[in-house]
Design a protein around this nucleic acid. Sequence first.
RNA 1: GGCCCCUUCGUCUAAGGGUUAGGACGCGGCCCUUUCACGGCUGAAAUACGGGUUCGAAUCCCGUAGGGGUCACCA
Length: 465
Amino acid sequence: MSARPVVTRFAPSPTGFLHIGGARTALFNWLFARHHGGKYLVRIEDTDRARSTQPAIDAIIDGLDWLGLSGDEPPVFQYDRAGRHAEIAEQLLAKGEAYRCYLTSEELAARRTAAQAERRPFRLTSEWRERSDGPADAPFVVRIKAPRAGETVIEDKVQGRVAVANEELDDFVLLRSDGNPTYMLAVVVDDHDMGVTHVIRGDDHLNNAFRQLIVVRAMGWEEPSYAHIPLIHGPDGAKLSKRHGALGVDVYRDEMGILPEALVNYLLRLGWGHGDDEVISREQAVEWFDLDHVGKSPSRMDYKKLENLNGHYLRGADDARLAKLVAPRLEIAGDQLGQLVGAMPEIKARAHNINELADGARFLFQERPLMMEPAATALLTPEARVHLAHARTALEALPKWSPEAIEAAVRAVADHAGLKLGKLAQPLRAALTGRTNSPGIFDVLLHLGQHESIGRISDQLEPSE
RNA sequence: GGCCCCUUCGUCUAAGGGUUAGGACGCGGCCCUUUCACGGCUGAAAUACGGGUUCGAAUCCCGUAGGGGUCACCA
């Protein structure tokens, strides 16, 4: 074990939003650093000037912040370091570990298609690798002089020992003809300069690790540990597409109504396990997380499980916090917010996401007369109306609108009529909420208030039209 | 196609030579109950296939099949 303090990093490219896979990569990096008392950094890989966008950068920063996965230091922007990257390319050139290649993109493309036509794998062999008599004014790229024989081995913390024959690796580009660094150069230089000890990232980078290692070794730098975690697939096992997981985490927050702690817990358990534990707090996760228990195979998104977990966290969440999240969906404000907070314990007990929370709370703020669901109307039989009338009388007579008084009054009406509570509660529920399910009927009455409750019952007894 | 990786209930996973293969989500049943949720109990449900090694294999080895990743002057 190296004595170096652990430094991890999450390095998204701002060409899209923070998706679920990126979020999990960030989480694993964060957890690993915390577990080892190390540092977790964020680096925005924006060297692709054409595809990097500010909205994407904002979405990534915002998403990380929402999940509590912001870096321990302000994010590093890779493009700001282009000068440093070019400097390293120069050093590599000077050391004879890299060379200027004057092959044009057209020539490259021609060779590639030729190889394809002959059905043999294309592996570039640039004649410039051994030549130094390039034309003075012609554009060139800087290529690494990759080893031709032997094999390169990575002791991956997740995938285990992975070896690849060096013939498979060709002389990839370090510096583009416009002088800008490629990703392959930039990551290595930045990881080194930032002191990154553990590179934890998606499995799609495993092949890149071999190439990056060549650069690390050419510079004589200390090699980082690699951990390539399997990708996340859609529910159908296919690659994550727009239809499911390749959504920004903001969609989980804003449209699906997921709590960040639920998403984090879900993501943690996706590809990693700790015995039979399912609900794991952030603190426990920090204590338990390790790379040894990260699975090696891709896992699929299971929205049902995410929802289930979300319901769990919803029930334990602070009422005022939840009310604030629900309020915009109901378009309420002011004292209605207080009413919402008061009813929240009963509402959140039945919801699995913020949308259901809003749906469950909606009855509180509906204007009279209520829009009735057909199934609710069906409960209001002539017989039921008789009982409702009795209930109204009893409720009107209450001097104090307290939980105890309400329950006693309603139960008394049911007893008096020789009814099981349900026979009275259901029509009452229908009249008060316009629906067939809701929080407990006493709670509904309590949070609606005496005036509103009686008004709603009356609406059903004496239809205005 | 070349190279690399993966394979335990439908899904996420536990079990790192000896277990009735465990848990969770989902699904079914029962209970609780004023509805809906929650909760409790319970049922069905897996070691991809074929060979080895071993007294003994989900665990180790080989092969087959299936899946995934990657092959840019993108990251």
